[in-house]
Computed example of a mutant assay.
Amino acid sequence: MSTDAFAAAIGKGASLHKPRFTEALRTGLIFGAIEAITPIIGWFIGQAAVSFAEEWDHWIAFTLLVLLGIHMIYNGLQEDEEEQERSGQHSFWVLAVTAFATSIDALAVGVGLAFVDVNILVAAAAIGVATAVMVTLGVMLGRVLGTVVGKRAEIIGGVVLMLVGAGILFEHLSAV
Results as ranks from 00 to 15, higher is better:
G138F: 02
V129E: 05
L65M: 09
F170N: 09
V159G: 02
I155K: 08
I120N: 00
R86M: 12
E171W: 08
L145W: 09
A153R: 06
L68Y: 01
A124R: 00
A124P: 04
I168S: 03
L141A: 15
E55L: 11
G76M: 03
N75S: 11
L25N: 04
V176W: 12
M140F: 10
G146M: 05
R20Y: 04
A153T: 07
I60A: 07
S174E: 11
D105Q: 05
A126I: 11
A9N: 03
K12A: 15
V122K: 11
G128Y: 00
E82V: 09
W93A: 12
F62L: 10
L161T: 06
A48N: 09
A175T: 13
A130N: 10
Y74H: 14
H172V: 02
T63E: 03
L173N: 13
G76Q: 08
A49K: 08
A166S: 11
H17F: 13
E23D: 09
E54R: 12
A124T: 03
W56C: 02
L107C: 08
V160C: 00
A106I: 01
D4M: 12
T136E: 04
S103P: 04
G69T: 08
V148H: 10
F115Q: 14
L16K: 08
L163G: 05
G76E: 05
D57K: 11
L161Q: 09
G42F: 00
F44K: 10
M134H: 09
V159E: 02
L64F: 15
T131S: 13
H90F: 12
A114E: 06
H90E: 11
F44P: 00
V133M: 11
K151S: 12
T102F: 05
L29Y: 08
E85Q: 15
G42Q: 02
I156K: 03
L64R: 04
A33R: 00
I156A: 11
I156M: 15
E79L: 14
W56Q: 07
V176Y: 11
E55A: 14
Q89G: 04
L95K: 02
S51W: 10
G150P: 02
V164N: 06
A130S: 14
V148D: 04
I104H: 00
G167L: 02
E81M: 11
G69H: 06
A33P: 01
D57Q: 14
G158I: 05
E171V: 07
G110Y: 04
G13R: 05
I156S: 05
L121Y: 15
S2N: 14
R86K: 15
V129L: 10
G138V: 08
Q84E: 15
L113K: 06
T136H: 06
G13E: 08
A14W: 00
F6T: 01
R86N: 14
R26D: 07
L64D: 02
R86P: 09
E171D: 14
A33W: 01
R152P: 07
I41F: 13
T22D: 07
G13P: 07
S103Y: 01
A49F: 11
L173K: 15
G142E: 07
V122R: 10
W43L: 04
V111H: 06
G42Y: 00
A101Y: 06
T38W: 00
L163W: 09
P39W: 05
R20C: 01
V135N: 01
V148Q: 11
W59P: 00
A24W: 03
G157Q: 05
I37D: 00
T131M: 03
R152F: 10
F21D: 04
S174C: 06
F21M: 12
T131C: 10
G88R: 15
V129Y: 03
F6A: 02
L141K: 06
R20L: 10
